[in-house]
Design a protein around this nucleic acid. Structure first.
Length: 565
DNA sequence: GCCGTTTTCGGCCCGACTGTTTTCAGTCG
């Protein structure tokens, strides 16, 4: 098991224990163990019992739990409490703002055992009558539960991209299969996947079907399968899978047909012509197909049915940003706050990966939980940055901060301290339960703050798990345009925030974006890949991406921002 | 459940924010 999986299990155990009224100090030892694993680098799975026991906060009991997790995937105490708790109640523990105590009331007093029960109870107004609940909690809960129910069979892209590749490889190795590709949502690089699709070109549909059914992790739902499709589940994914069988000569027809959205397929491309209508003839390649319709080739991630047909017909497809266009990495954390690796490690690793610069932006002082930097820490970090810059030149570390946007929209330090940074990412981390007016006003005030360089994860959403606070995207983008504030595309696969659907509007307004990994460890840099995927979907070019600037360009950019502040 | 010791039991614990209260419990990052 990975450290993060072990951590999740310990956290779940702690929540369940609290739900069942266990000794709070015992519960805390589980939370404490989970927290300390967060900052650990060594793999727990590879450590001996003695090594585990040497860690402060891990005693005999926890070491045994970890050993058991590695061997069986669970441990006695966790099993015991899971046994005592309905699945729906376990799911309820995942709702933000409602912890074990509240969930216990819903379960014990309200008789709620599933998310559907809970939604009904909210809708009937009964939740507001429970102890510790009122109108507002009921409304919040209703929205959160409805969101969870609608995402019940959805996965984040990063949760399934590896799995799709494995299936592609598996199928491609079969003798009667000539070609195979992902298609549909993953091929379009959607941020959330509720149907995983593949196209398999095969000489023998039924043989391929039976081969799929021989894979232990695949289970067919025959009622939903058809003569040319296999429909079912993969053990490792919440979302269903649809596999399209096609004769080798019609492979590209099926690939095009299943990749684009219905809208893409039905936008007129000529006199009584749509992409869909033109798929009748045999197609040698996707490129040749689009060319035959008198337009430029449209990459899969753009086939949403928005402006791409227009662009392709008028030779105006943006020159989409690529991995090699990223010159530096902004918005990263170190051990100064809640990061796993030291500033030096983060800097050296970034340099080794071939980037020209790193922007470090640890949490600010209000984020006490994350070890946010007090004034003295800022000074200490800036001294270290100075020293690193002498050592690592021409590579450069920029001194930044991820400043909390406080409830009233102000930033988290004195003018003097704010002025000491090269750049500032302003983000909301607390008080997420706001209406659209309050949230928008709060963000606008931060955008109008002359010290703000980048607006961080605009809506605070956690894909599949938590809806972001509602914001008036247009108003905020307009303000960013007016003030020259850069908007972050937070590349964490949990966030991908701002939503790519707003990139086009931002570009229209001349706003600059920035693909930032929000890395809390060296490996976090790899998340840039996910940010890049959604950035491309939104039509981002390197010219409009801040961290595509060279070192000298971005130095000049930060300097000119600071002069205006 | 962990830790430490006055050594086998007693103490352990971040603080802001929210929504519920009528002075605070619960939650979170």
């Amino acid at each position: 098991m990975t450290n993060s999986e072990i951590r999740q299990s310990l956290k779940l155990a702690a929540q369940l224990m609290e739900l069942h009224g266990e000794n709070p100090f015992k519960t805390r030892s589980y939370t404490a163990a989970a927290d300390l694993i967060k900052s650990m680098d060594e793999s727990l799975a590879e450590m001996s019992q003695d090594e585990l026991l040497a860690i402060e906060g891990i005693g005999k009991g926890m070491a045994a739990n970890i050993a058991s997790l590695n061997e069986t995937g669970s441990f006695e105490n966790l099993d015991k409490y899971l046994e005592l708790t309905p699945d729906g109640v376990v799911e309820m523990l995942g709702i933000s703002g409602f912890g074990p105590k509240k969930v216990a009331v819903l379960w014990q007093e309200g008789g709620v055992e599933t998310l559907d029960d809970l939604l009904l109870l909210c809708e009937s107004g009964q939740v507001a009558k429970l102890k510790g609940f009122a109108e507002k909690s009921q409304e919040t809960l209703k929205a959160a539960v409805a969101f969870l129910i609608s995402n019940r069979y959805s996965e984040k892209y990063a949760q399934v991209d590896g799995l799709v590749k494995e299936l592609e490889e598996e199928f491609s190795a079969w003798k009667e299969v000539t070609q195979c590709s992902e298609t549909g949502q993953t091929r379009r690089r959607m941020e959330v996947i509720d149907l995983l699709e593949l196209v398999v070109a095969t000489e023998d549909f039924e043989k391929t079907r039976s081969q799929i059914n021989q894979l232990a992790f695949m289970s067919e739902e025959e009622k939903k399968s058809g003569p040319v499709t296999w429909y079912g589940r993969h053990d490792a994914a919440k979302c269903p899978i649809k596999i399209h069988f096609v004769k080798p000569e019609r492979y590209f027809n099926r690939l095009i047909e299943t990749t684009g959205t219905m809208r893409h397929m039905h936008i007129p491309v000529g006199e009584k012509m749509t992409i869909h209508s033109e798929l009748k003839k045999e197609i040698p390649s996707e490129e040749a197909f689009y060319e035959s319709l008198g337009m430029k080739y449209i990459v899969p991630e753009l086939r949403e049915g928005s402006k791409e047909i227009d662009w392709a017909k008028n030779d105006k497809i943006p020159d989409l940003i690529e991995m090699s266009d990223l010159k530096g990495i902004l918005h990263n954390h170190s051990t100064y706050s809640d990061g796993k690796h030291t500033l030096r490690q983060m800097a050296e690793h970034c340099k080794e990966m071939g980037y020209e610069y790193l922007g470090i932006s640890d949490h600010s002082q209000t984020a006490v939980y994350a070890g946010g930097l007090m004034d003295a820490d800022v000074q200490r970090q800036q001294d270290e940055i100075k020293q690193l810059n002498e050592e690592l030149a021409p590579f450069k570390v920029f001194s930044g901060i991820e400043s909390d946007i406080l409830a009233d929209g102000s930033l988290d330090y004195s003018e003097e301290v704010l002025s000491s940074f090269d750049f500032i990412v302003a983000s909301v981390h607390s008080g997420l339960n706001m209406d659209v007016k309050k949230a928008t006003d709060r963000l606008l005030k931060a955008v109008y703050n002359p010290h703000t360089t980048i607006l961080g994860h605009m809506t605070g959403r956690l894909l599949v798990q938590r809806e972001g606070y509602p914001v008036d995207h247009k108003a905020i983008i307009d303000a960013c345009a007016e003030r020259g504030v850069v908007i972050e595309i937070n590349a964490s696969p949990y966030r991908l925030d701002m939503d790519w659907r707003w990139i086009d509007y931002a570009l229209e307004k001349g706003v600059m974006l920035s693909i930032n990994p929000d890395a809390h460890e060296m490996r976090g840099y790899e998340d840039m890949y996910y940010g890049l995927q959604v950035a491309r979907k939104g039509g981002l070019t390197k010219a409009s991406n801040l961290n595509s600037m060279s070192l000298s360009e971005i130095t000049a950019f930060f300097d000119s921002r600071k002069k205006k502040a």
